[in-house]
Write a protein that binds this DNA or RNA. Structure first.
Lengths: 163, 163
DNA sequence: CCTTAAAACTAACGATTGTTAGTTTAAAGC
DNA sequence: GCTTTAAACTAACAATCGTTAGTTTTAAGG
């Protein structure tokens, strides 16, 4: 809390005029981001798209959220375990639901012959790992290149890199 | 330190008969793993293999180290930033060298027409992200399925998932 | 100008952190 | 059986943690 206070130019105690606890601060940051993904998934799933295109849209969603919320999203992979109940359960619920829907799209795409018939779990894991680590890396792309990054990821993650 | 002590069944102070500081504990864990990757890369690079096969070998290397050192490797992605000098510089040096060699193999594979001519940096990032997150996920595979996991990853990451 | 309310401050609390000092226990070698 | 040494213990330290209480400053409205 003293680090945060220094960063915003006040004393640690003064933070408590704005936020009631450190734990609540973490919760608000993480659940806000989780909501963004949940809503993005909802929008994409409501559209009448081929499942392969839904996967491409999900990749673009991750890039967009990463670019617009880089700081908060850098906490997501490692810090959510420090949430306390009931926030922890709420977060896990959103996370599990998101991954379940993501996997359902992958499975459907495989059934429809748009993807190779591989292990859907491994495929999900492989795509999500890359998208979750984006924040630590995307800064090498200028804001103008974000679209190129999106399409590059779609090729890498979906079409494959082998000739 | 008290948590670690409880886990090994002794008092926190007793740990100092075996290790001189918490910081040194972190350093030994992380640098040992970093060495494993560095040596693995050296072995693979010394072999006379097509660059595409070197990439497959690197994927197998990551799976092997993840399986054999799961606990220590789970610290690698997020905790290395807490290393103090000079260990921090030593670690970064190994990390940078590893990524540089990995990228060189990717670039060569592209030049030789074994991979599509994509952004090598993005390709590296995409592969490494997945391999670095393996630890949080591979436990769903039984020890007999490790070979299947390796080959599944090679397909996903290199050959691509699209039909 | 005076009042009021938001938001900063200082000072300190109890808990926890990594670590040290000094002591006791356990096991091995002569 | 005595000595020695490794490795456990208890007790406590200084520093840092999140947080609270009480006070002062700042700025807006009547």
């Amino acid at each position: 809390m003293r680090d945060i206070a220094r960063e915003v130019g006040m004393e640690a105690a003064s933070l408590y005029n704005h936020i009631s606890s450190k734990q609540l601060l973490l919760k608000e940051l993480l659940l806000e981001i989780a909501q963004l993904f949940t809503e993005g998934m909802k929008v994409i799933n409501s559209q009448d798209l081929p499942s392969f295109e839904k996967l491409a849209a999900l990749i673009r969603l991750h890039v967009d959220i990463t670019v617009s919320h880089t700081d908060a999203i850098s906490l997501l992979p490692s810090e959510w375990v420090h949430l306390e109940e009931p926030s922890l359960q709420a977060f896990i619920k959103l996370k599990d639901a998101y991954e379940k829907e993501f996997k359902a799209i992958i499975t459907l795409a495989m059934k429809e012959g748009q993807l190779k018939e591989l292990d859907p779990e491994l495929t999900l894991f492989s795509i999500l790992s890359t998208l979750r680590w984006l924040y630590s890396w995307y800064s090498k792309y200028s804001s103008k290149d974000i679209d190129r990054l999106k399409e590059g990821l779609i090729v890498s993650l979906l079409h494959g890199i082998k000739t």
